[in-house]
Simulated scan of single mutants.
Amino acid sequence: MHLLFATSIVPDGALASGYEIANAAIIGALRRAGVRVTVIGFIWPGKAPSDPQETIVLGDVEVRTESASPLRKLAWLAKAVHSGLTFSSVKLRVVPDSEVRAAIERAGPFDGYVLNSVQFAGAFERVLADRPSIFVAHNVEHRSAQENAAAAGSALQRWMFRREARLLKIMEDRLCGAARFVFTLAEEDRSALDVASDGRSAVLPLVTRAQAPTGKARRHIDCDAALIGTWTWQPNRIGLDWFLTKVVPHLKPDFRIRIAGNMPSGIASPHPGVSFVGRVADAQAFVRGGAVIPLISTAGSGVQLKTIETFELGLPSVATSRSLRGIGYRPDNCVVTDDPIAFAAALQAAAGNIRDVDGSAFHRRQLKALDIAIGLGLEKLGVVRREVAA
């Protein structure tokens, strides 16, 4: 069986975001099931595909809103309004349908598509309608847009997010309806997309690495709490705002917090222990340097890959309930609370008594469940599911 994995940005090996980590896990599971996977999509400027023999690159594209000029943002908005597409999909309309169709034909005979999230599928929906498909919903995008609208700081932003939510709901309904099977990354997303039947959908439990971490390696602790993320993504920004304004004021002045990742303008904290360190060379080494990991999601859907990575590494954590969506197992060194004062107290207690656990069992459990779920979807495309090794 040969499937085309249609995605906005093709893998370049960097795994710099949760989206890219999830894509690597899903593609890996498809290939373990015996499927030939050819990836088609765009690539970041200056990057090269990690698997060029099995990748079709439609061109390079820069779609990050936070780094775009005001003129570029205005052009995207005008094009979206004129075309009736979402803001996120119109950014990918840099080549015509005919060019995408020709690239697909060059892939040779194939049996169907894996439509990876709504952005690329929404941009080239007509081109991708000629074969059976599986739809991978990384998030319930229309719900995220609704939450973004509620948190928006201006009337224009609220209008844009509300428009996006309305169009995304229509698009998600259409993609789910047309797909042979739907994969979500969290159980509650199946109901939110109206595909809760076991014959229509399954949850993909994800991993952040191909191999389980080996044992409990000794750590060098250089701060009390470490956070890393793409904070320019609005659901992450909402969680960070909650943490800085609601939790941090209840921490002792000497509690050291390091926050890494792309940071939007206007983020600051008067707490003397908070430092913003930007991009780091080794994300895993960075989080392993924190005595405790705050898992601070308060918005969005899908699964939190940082939660999965924390559990795989066996690191102590304090988590909001939203940070655990899509995850059926919680290690005993994870404290869950949505109360900011209790969250701060739990962080200080965990940093004062560091307790790591072996995360390899969690990784193995996730990987086995991922392979089983992938098999369910492939059966809908006519693939005989093989047994997954224990």
Rank of each mutant, 00 (worst) to 15 (best):
Q304E: 14
A121M: 04
A68P: 01
R163I: 05
A150G: 09
S144E: 15
L175D: 02
S191G: 07
V39S: 04
D51H: 09
Q348C: 07
I372H: 08
M171C: 09
G229M: 07
R325P: 00
C223G: 03
Q146W: 14
A145D: 01
E312T: 08
F362I: 07
A165D: 03
A210E: 15
A107N: 05
A78D: 06
Q157G: 15
E187G: 04
S317T: 06
L128G: 03
F161V: 00
E172C: 00
D194I: 06
R218H: 07
E379I: 08
T38M: 02
D12R: 04
A150T: 11
A285C: 03
L315R: 04
A345C: 02
K91E: 02
Q53T: 06
R126W: 04
P264K: 00
R355H: 14
L378W: 14
A29C: 04
I267V: 15
D224K: 13
P70K: 09
G112W: 15
P11K: 08
V114T: 07
R258I: 07
G215D: 07
Q53F: 12
Q146H: 11
A361P: 01
S321W: 13
P49F: 12
Q146R: 14
F343H: 03
K91W: 10
V383D: 08
A346T: 06
E172P: 00
P96I: 10
T320Y: 06
L295S: 04
G352W: 13
V207T: 15
R174W: 09
G328H: 14
L4E: 02
P49T: 09
P235C: 04
V136R: 08
E379C: 06
V247G: 00
R101D: 08
A68T: 07
S323E: 01
N262S: 13
H2W: 11
H271N: 04
V274K: 04
P272K: 07
S317N: 05
M1L: 11
A202W: 08
A192S: 12
R385Y: 12
G377W: 13
R166T: 10
A137H: 08
A102D: 11
L305D: 03
P132F: 13
D130N: 10
K368V: 15
A152W: 12
R166P: 01
R322F: 14
V303I: 15
A351S: 13
R200M: 05
P270S: 14
G266A: 06
V100C: 01
